[in-house]
Simulated assay, not measured.
Amino acid sequence: MTTPEARLDALGIELPAPMVPVANYVPYVITGNMLFVSGQVSATPNGRITGRLGEDMELSAGQHAARQCGINLIAQCKAAVGDLSRIKRVVKLGGFVNAAGDFTDIPQVINGCSDLMVEVFGDAGKHARSAVACPVLPLGVAVEVDGVFEIEG
């Protein structure tokens, strides 16, 4: 059985340092066997991925931005639990897309994050999800995703 870390290596993904909060909150909370990760924005170590879907950003770029949110979520998970094999299940993702009023492919954008969760965690990466559009997101980013994960005690 392949570990999530091995799958990340096979995908050529190096986890960045976890993002620090930009306001009065913590990056994650563990209660019982649940890990709640605060919203992770579409940012790379080289800067933020900004734009508005349906205005100055295409679907594929939005999916890339959502995938980056997923990478940042996984980086927070690793900071929280150490070994990613302790993640028993990706329970739920909440996706927010900076989108023009007539842009309706919101679920397809968030697939960039959802697909990554399945690539990294296998069947345990399949999750419940919400995906909504917003007229603006913090720091002007294109996408933000938060997550709930079940962990081994």
Rank of each mutant, 00 (worst) to 15 (best):
R67P: 01
G70D: 06
G94V: 10
S42Q: 07
V141Y: 07
C134W: 11
C113N: 04
A65Q: 05
T3G: 03
P107C: 06
K88H: 12
A66H: 00
V143F: 00
G82H: 05
L15E: 11
P135F: 15
M34V: 04
E152A: 14
V136P: 13
R48I: 07
V22A: 13
G12F: 01
G62W: 03
G101N: 14
C113T: 07
V90S: 01
I30T: 03
R52L: 14
N98G: 08
T3H: 05
D56A: 12
K126R: 15
D56Y: 15
V145T: 14
R89H: 11
I151P: 00
L53V: 05
S130H: 06
G47P: 12
I87E: 02
C69K: 00
L15C: 05
V90Q: 06
P4H: 05
A99M: 01
E144W: 01
I151T: 10
A124Y: 09
C69H: 04
E14K: 13
V41Y: 15
K78T: 07
V97S: 08
A80D: 12
L53E: 14
G51F: 09
D105N: 13
K126I: 12
V91S: 13
A23D: 11
A99E: 03
V141N: 12
C134L: 15
N46F: 08
S42R: 09
N111E: 14
S85F: 06
I49M: 07
D9E: 02
I151V: 10
P45Q: 13
A61N: 09
P27E: 08
A6T: 04
M57I: 02
A128T: 09
S60E: 13
M34R: 14
V148T: 10
S130Q: 02
L8N: 01
T104Q: 07
G47H: 14
K78C: 10
V141W: 09
R52N: 06
E58T: 08
I87P: 04
R52I: 14
A131H: 04
A10G: 13
D9L: 09
V109E: 02
A65M: 02
S42H: 08
L53Y: 12
V141Q: 10
G95R: 00
M1G: 11
G82N: 02
I87M: 07
I106L: 10
R67T: 01
E5S: 11
L35V: 05
G95N: 02
L59D: 15
G70H: 07
G62S: 03
E150W: 11
R67H: 03
A65T: 06
P18A: 00
K92D: 06
V81L: 02
L8Q: 07
A66K: 00
A6V: 10
N33V: 02
S85L: 03
E144D: 08
R7F: 01
V26H: 06
E150R: 14
P16S: 03
I151D: 01
N98E: 04
C134F: 15
A66N: 02
M19W: 04
L93Y: 01
A66Q: 05
F36Q: 11
L35Y: 07
R129T: 13
E152G: 09
V20R: 14
K126Y: 12
G147C: 07
E119C: 08
S114R: 05
V90T: 13
G122S: 06
A142E: 11
S130R: 04
